[in-house]
Amino acid sequence: MAKPKIATAALTSCFGCHMSVLDIDERILELIEIIDFDKSPINDIKKFTGQCAIGLIEGGCGNEENVHVLQEFRKHCDILIALGDCAIMGDIPAMRNNIPLKECLDEAYLNGPSVHNPEKIIPNDKEIPLCLDRVYPCSEIVKIDYSLPGCPPNAEIIWQALVAILNNKPLDLPYEIIKYD
């Protein structure tokens, strides 16, 4: 029987949660005994090769491409996990959520103290994904099956959750590994 596949993606985030996945250290060797990585920045596979058992989503949705990727993941993954606080609640990028988008762009590209932009151009190339009005938690875009909090989630919660889900067991996570920071 073919091994179940795991796909991962980083949306509006810092990649810290992916670093935390690698933080399971040598257990990653155990992990690839029982699963294959599909589309993921870890192996640089760009496209889904088929249906995946688990999708790990790092980051919230701050632009239209994030939404597209997230919807693709929902389509291709049986179980979708919001990995880390950005995916769950937007986290640091969501600090812009109660500031109008125009004010954010003006500050970043026109008014910021270190900005050098004599032509006063706010990037608007059609190749650049369009910024959304705010950063959306993943659960507001698609159905999320599990959430693993933390900034980043520690390797232990990632490992224990993956092992439980892959073995069809309920998540029974010990107190010390559930952290919101």
């Binding site: 919001a82 769950i88 937007g90 969501a94 705010r134 938690p137 996570l173 559930i178 920071d181």
Partner: peptide
Amino acid sequence: QALGYRFGILAPKYDYFYP
């Protein structure tokens, strides 16, 4: 936060307000 931990809350079940 400690109560969230004690109740084993992984994520709130409601949408965020961002007030």
